[in-house]
Write a protein that binds this DNA or RNA. Structure first.
Lengths: 193, 193
DNA sequence: AAAAAGCATTGACTTGAATCAATGCTTTTG
DNA sequence: CAAAAGCATTGATTCAAGTCAATGCTTTTT
């Protein structure tokens, strides 16, 4: 039920059986059907979600009601509107399930208590956010400095599992492109080699 | 000499005089003249730099030798090629001074030792990286979801002090635009209201 | 103090992505 | 299982940003 969560935890910070049991008391488990929302824009984000199984996306909706995917969350990844979670402000992102999914949730009070009382949890949290920061910086660098072709190829190389499971128009959205443009770029890439 | 560093530290995690003195033994101080490099692409990034005074930029250079600014570092901010610092891989960014600057540096071994032996330092680190993550996420969201006009206005609203101190073509670079385009956008904004 | 370098602006033109529209295919749903 | 919804592709056109080039101004450098 929390296998993957603790596997990932132990890869970063080694836990004893007892510590693991203790952390379990702070976690809740949630199943989500495809298309169900974990979070809707405007609500306060009450959890950080760890994806045990399935796939989710976080996205914002602009004035012309176009969706912009800011993040995918597949097995082993964490997904949340962190700003809303930390500040208690209304969320600016929506999060919903792309497939039937199973999540490990941690509430704000649980998160805060673990941070204060369990150094290993703080270390785990620090390493997670550091990884997320580095991943996002890579993405930003490639948006600012590379051609769309390169960016798409980098994306495929880096996240082949996402490319396989997620419809192409969502990858376009993640890249800040229209579906038509991405389709043409794929064509250009495949004919030019 | 380290006033601002400890001011920021204390805003996040309260330190005793003794703790402060202990941390000081791990820090070094460095002055940089305008245009001097703190880090060059290809070298390994040996420090995290905290800006006590002055202004720096981190940027990458693409195939056509165009510069892309990934981050500014003004007083009170931290600047580094974090990926290179953490992994020991060659840096992909350059960092140089936009003005004569004064920096508080922490080396990797100092950083690691403090993380292991001083919980407050780990908390400080976690809060810093969390703040950096949230700032970058906001930037990414606005790149993906907003028009260039909006993005420029948001930038000015959020970082008025940067806009005042940094040449306009660097703001264009930070936004992923050419200087000409930014100039035209400013004109459009000023005439349309 | 003069020369050089750096910077912002403007104009003319080109290029790349968005938009609008249509088609065929596949997956979901009632 | 039939209808509907979702999806990828292609074509024609529009529009926004990039490129190239020139000018005038300001700041640095010598």
């Amino acid at each position: 039920m929390h296998e993957l969560y603790f596997q990932k935890f132990n890869e970063k910070v080694r836990l004893t059986e007892t510590e693991q049991e203790r952390i379990k008391t702070y976690l809740t488990y949630k199943k989500l059907r495809r298309k169900q929302y974990l979070l809707q824009e405007g609500d306060v984000c009450k959890f950080i979600a760890f994806v045990e199984k399935g796939a989710l996306r976080a996205y914002s909706v602009d004035d012309s009601s176009a969706e912009h995917i800011i993040q995918f969350g597949l097995e082993g990844w964490t997904i949340s509107d962190l700003y809303s979670f930390l500040t208690g402000e209304p969320a600016t992102y929506n999060i919903d399930a792309l497939e039937d999914s199973e999540l490990v949730l941690i509430s704000k009070s649980a998160h805060e208590e673990l941070l204060l009382t369990m150094p290993k949890y703080e270390t785990f949290t620090r390493l997670n956010i550091t990884g997320a920061y580095l991943a996002m910086q890579r993405r930003l660098t490639s948006i600012i400095g590379s051609s769309v072709e390169e960016r798409y190829q980098d994306f495929i190389a880096l996240y082949p599992h996402i490319a396989q499971r997620v419809p192409q128009h969502m990858i376009a959205s993640y890249m800040g492109l229209t579906p038509e443009t991405l389709s043409r770029i794929r064509k250009r890439i495949s004919t030019n080699k």
